[in-house]
Simulated assay, not measured.
Amino acid sequence: MAQVVRSQTRSLRNRDFVRAARYMGEPTHTILSRHIIPNMASLLIIDATLGVVSAIMAETSLSYFGFGIQKPDVSLGTLLSDGTAAAVTRPWLFVFPAFVLIILLFAISLVGDALRDAIDPTSGMNRD
């Protein structure tokens, strides 16, 4: 992600509005805060959203296989692991934690998408 941010920053550095701000004598921190970061906000929000979703999935999968959070602490992975053995006789022990995990990941993705649309309204204009 650092390489993507660096290349995006370098491409924005050569845009006309950044050059105009530099020629007008604005300091570097002002150019960064007013021009560069707002134009990269959607990229950063998408990366943060994907990072949170992947961290939740990593913790859940590690706990499911017994390498993450151990009992007596509770995690979605430990709940899924406990419910796997009883999935045929008592399916609610597996279905409810799986449903919560799916809804949680979907909600985080929706919040990230809504933040991206709120900060960068032009990003949603090209959707079909």
Score class of each variant (00 low, 15 high):
residue 4 V to W: 08
residue 122 T to R: 15
residue 35 H to M: 11
residue 99 F to C: 13
residue 45 I to W: 00
residue 52 V to Q: 05
residue 24 M to R: 13
residue 57 M to D: 05
residue 17 F to I: 02
residue 20 A to K: 03
residue 35 H to T: 04
residue 58 A to P: 03
residue 54 S to C: 14
residue 31 I to K: 07
residue 21 A to E: 10
residue 88 V to M: 05
residue 25 G to R: 07
residue 90 R to F: 08
residue 55 A to R: 07
residue 21 A to M: 04
residue 111 V to H: 08
residue 75 S to L: 08
residue 76 L to I: 05
residue 50 L to I: 05
residue 24 M to H: 14
residue 40 M to Y: 02
residue 120 D to V: 06
residue 53 V to S: 00
residue 16 D to G: 03
residue 14 N to G: 12
residue 56 I to P: 00
residue 86 A to G: 02
residue 62 L to G: 00
residue 99 F to K: 10
residue 25 G to L: 15
residue 110 L to P: 05
residue 91 P to W: 01
residue 13 R to S: 02
residue 67 F to R: 06
residue 97 P to C: 11
residue 47 D to E: 10
residue 112 G to Y: 01
residue 86 A to N: 04
residue 14 N to F: 00
residue 93 L to C: 07
residue 124 G to F: 10
residue 25 G to D: 12
residue 81 S to A: 11
residue 76 L to Y: 04
residue 2 A to V: 06
residue 120 D to P: 08
residue 13 R to I: 00
residue 22 R to I: 09
residue 57 M to C: 13
residue 20 A to P: 03
residue 4 V to T: 13
residue 127 R to T: 12
residue 59 E to R: 03
residue 116 R to A: 08
residue 38 P to S: 12
residue 101 L to C: 13
residue 100 V to M: 15
residue 40 M to N: 03
residue 120 D to L: 03
residue 92 W to R: 00
residue 121 P to M: 04
residue 13 R to Y: 02
residue 29 H to M: 13
residue 19 R to T: 10
residue 64 Y to T: 02
residue 19 R to F: 12
residue 98 A to I: 09
residue 17 F to W: 02
residue 106 F to H: 04
residue 103 I to E: 14
residue 7 S to M: 07
residue 89 T to V: 09
residue 32 L to S: 02
residue 92 W to A: 01
residue 122 T to I: 09
residue 99 F to G: 15
residue 63 S to L: 03
residue 95 V to G: 07
residue 87 A to N: 05
residue 126 N to E: 11
residue 89 T to I: 09
residue 86 A to L: 11
residue 99 F to M: 14
